[in-house]
Amino acid sequence: MSATVSAGTTRGPGAADTRVDVRKTYKLYIGGKFPRSESGRSYEVVDHRGRFLANAAQGSRKDARDAVVAARAAFAGWAGSTAYNRGQVLYRVAEVMEGRRAQFVAEVRASEGLAERRAEAVVSQAIDRWVWYAGWADKLAQVLGGLNPVAGPYFDISAPEPTGVVGVLAPQGSSLLGLVSVVAPVVVSGNTVVVLTSEQRPLPAITLSEALATSDVPGGVVNLITGRTAEVAPWIASHRDVNAIDLAGAAAADGVSWGDLELAAAENLKRVVRPAGAGSDAVEPDWSRTPDLSRVTSFLETKTVWHPKGR
């Protein structure tokens, strides 16, 4: 059992009716492995009432860079896999999460302070979101691409392709459903991703990474960094080998200005998804609403291929 679930139970050594539980070390997820931060740092994660849950790894600039290297290395294989295969892998994530739903419910409850039924509903939605996106994998090219009727003897076709390595600031509030809602639309089309998890609520993300690691998601396709958003986000926003960035998690992140991150992202013309909200405000949307395709299309390129026709 995780530390979360055992919180509040008797922990005293030698208590006759309880076993001393084995607690999990929460680490990063980079390149399919679970390293500690290279910085050797960790930070205290507490539940919604301020009680200690765990020491999470406090990711560093170097960890973020390592994650980008891993994501870049994984890109060709993941983007080059068949859409059918990617769809099955995403569906597999849902299957594995379903099997561990009690753990996710407990961690979401502890992190977000939700009542049990509400936490159950959130985890169900997070699982169902993977299923929804899984089904999109082998439909995107048909829905978003097609033949162009050019005025000449040419075969001319447009199809979507993944944009490359995507940096994602995961939502600060919704630690699991929000996270899945921003990661699944990135990877379904073949992008690889470096995620900065919710700073204060990182534990569900690490447990999700365990599900990813056992779901045939190739190492490096999803990389998760826990830590201080304000510290690590600028290095991802300015990284020259990152092609796009989703700033959803800039809302309510301590010391983070999404405008500054977008400014840094302009250096190599990253595709930027701004946080919801008006003006310079950033708000976290209601992730329980049914998504549309916009998060998918934000991380796609359209490639158009011409060839002459002739006898």
Partner: peptide, 23 residues
Amino acid sequence: AGVVWANTFNKFDPTSPFGGYKE
């Protein structure tokens, strides 16, 4: 690359999307 011309080059048409990857 956003546009790939095979056995032709510099062809344009209003029905055909044009634009780039990366920078």
